[in-house]
Amino acid sequence: MKKTIVIVDDHILIAKALQSIITNFSQFEVLYECQNGKELQEIFAVKTNVPNVVLLDISMPIMNGFETAKWLKENHPNVLIMALSMQDDEQSLIKMIKNGAKGYLLKNAHPAELENALNLLLKNGYYYPDWAVNRLFANINNTSSNEVEICFSDREKEFLKYTITELTYKEIADKMCCSPRTVEGYRDNLFEKLELKSRVGLAVYAMKNGFI
């Protein structure tokens, strides 16, 4: 069965071009297109209109990509969000990830990269191209020599694997069969070891260093 996709982009020509490209992907089909998040909310009122993946533009009128991603994360957490934008700045990237995007792709990407990105998004639950990971990781002040010296407990390694998921810290605690306070301790220890300040930073580190 084909996986379903919805395109949310206020540029009609781009949305139509994307639909035409995806039509050539044997494993995917486009259900419909929306011009902003508000329109998506209205269509999502019908259960059969909810897709596997939302290709989400960032800059849109009425309800932009940041707001739409956050709404999807809170109301439809099983829908995978792939941000599709011309913006490759770190601020937009981080904000989309925090708001629930599991993938980020530039609009100038080759169709083959789009198909590969969609496949990996569905297979792994996330897709970030090398440039995105490198952009995020650039602000982590750890040299390769320091990374080798860092020692992690088995429980810290297990916790790192959950940082990329949508699970809350309480839900992670349930998965790890411990208390939320213990999980917060793992988090704080990793913050200190890696000189990080956010869960996004931990998730990027986990992806970059093969913990996922």
Results as ranks from 00 to 15, higher is better:
57 D>R: 11
70 K>N: 13
100 G>I: 07
95 K>D: 03
80 L>V: 05
143 T>W: 11
93 L>E: 02
190 L>T: 04
174 D>N: 14
127 Y>Q: 02
101 A>V: 10
114 L>V: 12
115 E>L: 15
93 L>H: 00
55 L>S: 12
116 N>M: 13
181 R>N: 15
119 N>P: 02
121 L>Y: 01
131 W>P: 00
175 K>L: 04
123 K>M: 08
146 N>G: 08
144 S>F: 12
150 I>M: 08
76 H>I: 14
111 P>V: 12
142 N>A: 05
159 F>E: 06
138 A>F: 02
121 L>I: 05
90 E>S: 10
186 Y>H: 14
95 K>L: 09
99 N>I: 02
104 Y>I: 06
176 M>H: 10
69 A>G: 10
143 T>L: 10
144 S>W: 12
165 T>S: 15
54 V>I: 15
145 S>N: 14
136 L>K: 01
186 Y>I: 08
63 M>Q: 07
61 P>Q: 08
145 S>G: 13
111 P>D: 11
151 C>L: 13
54 V>L: 15
58 I>M: 05
108 N>M: 03
185 G>E: 12
130 D>A: 12
71 W>C: 11
80 L>T: 03
76 H>W: 13
143 T>Y: 12
93 L>R: 01
80 L>I: 10
73 K>A: 14
136 L>V: 03
67 E>R: 11
72 L>A: 15
124 N>L: 06
101 A>W: 00
58 I>S: 04
57 D>V: 07
74 E>S: 11
149 E>F: 05
109 A>W: 01
54 V>G: 05
138 A>Q: 07
176 M>E: 07
93 L>G: 03
69 A>N: 08
114 L>C: 10
143 T>R: 11
59 S>K: 10
124 N>A: 03
167 L>G: 02
133 V>L: 11
51 P>F: 06
50 V>A: 13
167 L>Y: 14
65 G>E: 03
150 I>V: 15
119 N>K: 14
79 V>I: 15
85 S>F: 01
168 T>A: 11
137 F>K: 03
125 G>Y: 03
73 K>N: 13
80 L>D: 05
186 Y>T: 07
114 L>Y: 05
118 L>S: 03
142 N>V: 11
129 P>I: 08
190 L>V: 11
118 L>Y: 04
105 L>Q: 02
103 G>C: 05
150 I>K: 10
78 N>T: 13
51 P>A: 09
141 N>P: 00
120 L>G: 02
59 S>F: 08
145 S>I: 13
176 M>C: 09
124 N>G: 01
175 K>F: 10
171 E>M: 15
85 S>C: 04
139 N>Y: 04
128 Y>G: 01
180 P>D: 04
140 I>D: 00
63 M>T: 06
172 I>P: 02
187 R>G: 04
66 F>V: 06
193 K>H: 07
185 G>K: 14
76 H>Y: 15
169 Y>P: 00
100 G>E: 07
149 E>I: 09
118 L>P: 03
59 S>H: 10
57 D>F: 09
148 V>H: 09
191 F>D: 10
186 Y>D: 07
149 E>S: 14
